[in-house]
Design a protein around this nucleic acid. Structure first.
Lengths: 153, 153
DNA sequence: GTTTATGCAAAACATTTGCAGCCTT
DNA sequence: AAGGCTGCAAATGTTTTGCATAAAC
C-alpha cells in the first residue's frame, strides 16, 4: 500500500471526512515528502492546482492531519510552523539542522540519536517525538558568506 | 568579574549605548538565568521594577543583546521566542527538552551532546550554537495526565 | 549639537475564529 | 433536515516599525 493510500485510510477511519480539499492538500504533502513546508508555502503550491481553496482550510487541514498523527509540526526558529509527514508514513528516521541565519532546514541521520532518545526517555521520562530533534546553528553556506563579508571589510 | 559586570562591558565596548532601560532589562535576565523568558514574561517582571519602560523597548533590547551574542533566542514550538543568557556568560552547558503539550522547557546536560556537535560540525560544516539543541516530545507530567485521562474514560 | 534611544500607536505577520452558505448523506 | 466543511473576512497574539520626543555622549 502506498504512503498516499495508507494516509487516505487513516483519514477515512477517523471522525473526519475525506473532502476534495483535504485530498488535494494531502497529495501536495506526499509529493513534497522531503520538504518541510509551511502553511503559506503549501498554499502557494496549492494555488497552482486549485485556486479556490482558502488559506484557512489549509491551516485547518494541517491541524487535523497533525491531530491524526499524519504530520509533524514544529516551529523552527522564526515563528513559522513547518509540516512534514511523520516517520510512520514516510519511513525515514531523521533529525534537523536548522540555520538561524537563512532558516533553511537540513536533515540528518545518525545512530547517536537513538542513544540520545533512549537516554532522555529512561532518565527524564521524556517521550521524544519522531524526527523532532532540532539542532540550531549556522549552516556551511551562511558561514562561508560571513567569512567572505569579513574579508571584504 | 560577575556575569553582570561582564555583560555591561560587552555593551560598553559595542556601538550601543548603556541606557537605564537596558541595564534594568539585563538585571532581570541575570536574576532569571535559569529561566527561558519570553519578551512578554520579561515585560511582566519589568512592570514591577519600572512601569515606564515600553514593550517595544524590551523587544529592541532583546534584539540587541542577541546581536551582541549575550542571549540565545529560540522559538520553541508555539511561535513565542524565548531568551536565555548564552553559555559564555552563564557558564552552563545544557540543552532543551521541550514539551509540545504544555510548552514547558527542561534543561539537560550529557556528554553525548559533545559528540553530536563534533559530528555535525565535521560532517556537515554546521556550526552548532551553544545550548540550542532542542528535543521535542511529551514530558513526564503531560504523559501521566494523558494516561490518567485514558483511565477515566 | 548630533546621534542614538525611547514610548506610543499603528502596522505587519502568521494563525485562528465566527459565520453564512455549502456540500454530503 | 442535520452534520460537518468551506471560504471569506474579521479577530487574535506576537513582534516590528514610524515618528515625535527625550536622553546620551
Amino acid at each position: 500500500m502506498s504512503i498516499y493510500q495508507n494516509i487516505i485510510s487513516t483519514i477515512q477511519q477517523s471522525t473526519y471526512k475525506l473532502t476534495p480539499q483535504r485530498e488535494t492538500i494531502l497529495k501536495i504533502l506526499v509529493d513534497n515528502v522531503n520538504e518541510h513546508l509551511s502553511a503559506e508555502e503549501l498554499y502557494f503550491i496549492l494555488k497552482e492546482v486549485n485556486p479556490d481553496i482558502g488559506l484557512a482550510t489549509v491551516y485547518r487541514t494541517l491541524d487535523i492531519f497533525y491531530e491524526l498523527k499524519i504530520l509533524e509540526k514544529i516551529t523552527f526558529g522564526n515563528g513559522i510552523a513547518k509540516y512534514h509527514l511523520r516517520q510512520t508514513f514516510n519511513n525515514s528516521m531523521h533529525h534537523h539542522l536548522i540555520c538561524t541565519r537563512c532558516h533553511n532546514i537540513d536533515t540528518i541521520s545518525n545512530p547517536i540519536f537513538t542513544k540520545l532518545i533512549k537516554y532522555v526517555n529512561s532518565e527524564y521520562g521524556f517521550e521524544v517525538q519522531d524526527n523532532t530533534i532540532a539542532i540550531h546553528g549556522i549552516c556551511e553556506e551562511c558561514k562561508n558568506n560571513e567569512d567572505l563579508n569579513n574579508e571584504i571589510r
